[in-house]
Design a protein around this nucleic acid. Structure first.
Lengths: 254, 254
DNA sequence: CAGTGGTCTAGACCACTCG
DNA sequence: GAGTGGTCTAGACCACTGA
């Protein structure tokens, strides 16, 4: 393809600063990542061969290669034999593969400002819930209903149950901050993994209202069972995510 | 702490074979990974310094470093200044978390009998597609439209594009069996990972018809980009899964 | 067939950390 | 202070690919 930026100008933007304590390859990588994510280096643009850029930057080919390799790893670059190296722009942040994280962390990764509105908070006893958690039917649970917002826009409507037998401190939790952080710090519960399922459903009347839909619309229904390192079920969550604004992303490995 | 295996014996196990066509660093990495995962190199075991192992293996320090770096990346090794390099915990059973698999394998795991109906098969040229794949705009692609069934019931409507530049043999593929198996065996393409997104949408008129819906219904729209071990985009798939019969399941790790 | 990235070498200097 | 990993260099040869 064509070069949108002349190589000399590109080299100028990428030139590392010897006064900077960061390693050269990190400086170059940082600049390069910025140019790609911002779109200044558009999808399909040709990058100079490793040897050429190395010469222009007055660094070794090894140093340039290190940057290119890092970007090839994340699929932002691809190389085709003699065809050279081209940009495969991906403006979106791609979250880590299957890492367990809370809503807030995820929103921040997507570049949005997270916030939460607490709609309901009760302690309940429920036989069905108790058997799901594998506890006695007298078990007590904290039930939270929360509206999750990204950039002030409703993103998901979430109902969560926590086993108060495992984490009694939760009963006095102010529901500010991350539930996962609270489970770790005062409660001493280390989360290990989770089983999650994702379905497509239509929003119900009340849910449509919350999201501001005039009619039922397709949504992602996420159900998650989160287990502690002792293999106990700690949390069960059902989250309804608006289909028009939210896509679930993940990485797979062969 | 202590060495369970003397360094000389370790070096013998790690020594690359010049007759093997694999690069040295991959051979060494493979052996080392095996020793760690099998527990022969137990948690806390000291590994020889990069320089020492390089000498013993008669390769350059750079080559050894490449292996150590890869293992540090995945947290199987950790280095502590002069304290040297030690083996970190053996990750416990990491079940099929986010494993890349084909439709048939997945259906069988769910206890259903998979089958496929081929709806369309063409070779096309498309500039938009070419730029997504990062190839020249003259690139040719194999486009497949398939209806996927589980126990004879339509489960998903799937459109896939394959880069014929990377896998020319695909043009003569009989589309029986797994595409992934065919890519591996005759084409010699090893799939490494994939980026996947999951959205909720309503089925279009044609799609509703295929699924036997009388009206548009919520569906899961999966988009997947599958990359080879050479970090080239090999396959792009869009699959529409009926929301009433299919839930996407995955495991998360903390 | 010329140029690309992939691999590898044999050095070098540095900051840091342990003994 | 000695040894570690972190970084970097200036070469080299190879397989492969596209012009």
């Amino acid at each position: 393809m064509t070069e949108l930026i002349p190589v000399e100008a590109l080299a100028e933007r990428l030139r590392p600063n010897p006064g900077n304590s960061q390693p050269y390859y990190q400086q170059i990588l940082q600049q390069l990542t910025g140019l790609i994510d911002s779109g200044e280096l558009a999808e399909g643009a040709n990058l100079p061969p490793e040897r050429v850029l190395a010469d222009l930057l007055a660094v070794s080919r090894t140093t340039v290669k290190r940057c290119y390799d890092a970007l090839r790893e994340t699929h932002k670059l691809a190389s085709y034999g003699r065809g050279g190296t081209v940009v495969r722009g991906t403006p979106r942040v791609s979250p880590e593969m299957g890492r367990l994280k809370g809503f807030s962390e995820e929103m921040r990764e997507l570049g949005m400002t997270p916030s939460t509105r607490l709609l309901e908070r009760v302690v309940i006893q429920d036989r069905t819930l108790a058997s799901m958690f594998g506890g006695p039917s007298s078990a007590r649970f904290l039930k939270l209903v929360r509206l999750r917002l990204g950039d002030e826009q409703p993103m998901s409507y979430e109902t969560a149950w926590y086993d108060l037998g495992l984490a009694p401190d939760l009963e006095n939790w102010d529901t500010n901050g991350s539930a996962y952080a609270f489970l770790r710090d005062p409660c001493g519960i280390v989360l290990a993994d989770a089983d999650q399922s994702i379905e497509a459903v239509l929003s119900s009347g009340m849910e449509s209202e919350v999201f501001g839909f005039s009619a039922p619309a397709p949504c992602l229904l996420l159900k998650r069972r989160t287990y502690s390192s002792h293999r106990k079920l700690v949390e069960y969550v059902e989250g309804l995510f608006r289909g028009d604004a939210y896509a679930y992303r993940l990485k797979l490995r062969a």
